[in-house]
Computed example of a mutant assay.
Amino acid sequence: MDAERDEAVREFESHRQRLFSLAYRMLGSAAEAEDAVQDAYLRWHGAEPGQVVAPGPWLNKVLTNLCLNRLTSARARREEYPGTWLPEPVASGALGPMERAEQREAVSFAVLTLMERLSPPERAAVVLRDAFGYSHREVAGVLDCTEAAARQLHHRGRKRLADGAPRPGTVDAEQNAALLGRFLQAASDGALEQLEQLLAAQVVVWSDGGGKVRAALRPVHGRVNAARFLAGLFERFTDDVRFELAEANGAPALLGWEGEELTSVGLVDVGPDGVTDIRILRNPDKLAHYAHRHRALSQNG
């Protein structure tokens, strides 16, 4: 019996990263994704012998339905969220391979934020189809609907994403990282003119404090307003905060540390005329998972 249990654990662990990747894309929250994966494990552990013929598809279906249930309640909570709601950042390696630009874009803050426009079934259809290569028939099997209905869910979801598609940006991570370095220097120096030169005319800054730390409750629009807001933000925190260039969600990121505590994660989108979107995470509840993974990766070299 112990040998069977150990084998069951090993089998589940071989799927864990993929399951987390699926749950994170569905929920936009690393903490909720880990909870959903743990719930899937409990279902797996409680399955009758012989009930699971194909572990991978079985776990995907169980997890997807767990996420659908969570999304229903999460949508209500996010409607009452104080200020801007942003997805939770994840560290490199948490979502598996990120070699292609398409893989990085699929978990970008811009796309994950747009996913909030989709109904839970639409979101599931898009994630399963686009990120995991499911056919419409396989999506229908997961969602317990007809193939035609699955196709329609995917079509509607893709259309809603396209209607709010991020402004065209670069996909060169090295260029983005270099620009982020110049951005950090200009903001830290309070060099408004230099900072403005790095920003697109219609740049937007979002900040998410979750009502727990100071953050702008509304987006800041426009080059001049954004530059002043960012310079003021850095002026308040530079003396106490150590900044570090890192990676989150497959893109260059700016981390802010106060001692050993991670207090902010900032990500930027870059277009032909400069930085188009800046998203700053300050809600401590959304930084814990990233901080833990980042420290672990740093310690392992």
Rank of each mutant, 00 (worst) to 15 (best):
R10V: 11
E193L: 13
F132Q: 15
S264A: 15
L153V: 07
V220I: 15
A30Y: 06
L198Q: 08
V52E: 02
G164M: 04
E235M: 10
A165C: 02
A140H: 10
L297R: 15
E99N: 08
V275C: 00
R77M: 09
E247C: 03
F109E: 07
T64S: 05
F229L: 12
L199D: 06
E11S: 12
D240N: 06
A227V: 07
V62S: 03
A291C: 02
R223P: 05
V220D: 03
R236Y: 03
S298H: 08
L86E: 05
V139I: 12
L245R: 11
E34V: 09
R129E: 07
L66V: 15
P55E: 10
A162M: 13
D172L: 11
L86F: 08
R129M: 11
G210V: 09
R70F: 02
A200V: 06
R78S: 04
F109A: 12
R242Y: 03
H136M: 14
E4S: 13
K159L: 14
R279F: 01
F234N: 05
K286H: 04
E13W: 05
N65W: 09
R236W: 02
G169I: 11
D130A: 15
C67H: 03
H155Y: 10
R104T: 06
T170M: 02
R214C: 04
V204Q: 09
P97Q: 05
V126F: 07
A173N: 01
R160S: 02
Y81S: 11
R137S: 15
V9S: 04
D172S: 12
F12A: 09
A187M: 09
C67R: 07
E244Y: 03
V62I: 15
G181D: 07
R242K: 13
N249R: 15
G259A: 08
V62E: 06
M115H: 08
T72M: 11
A216R: 14
A125Y: 08
E138S: 15
G222Y: 03
A187S: 14
A30V: 05
A8N: 07
S21D: 03
R129S: 15
S135L: 13
G232P: 04
D239L: 14
Y290A: 00
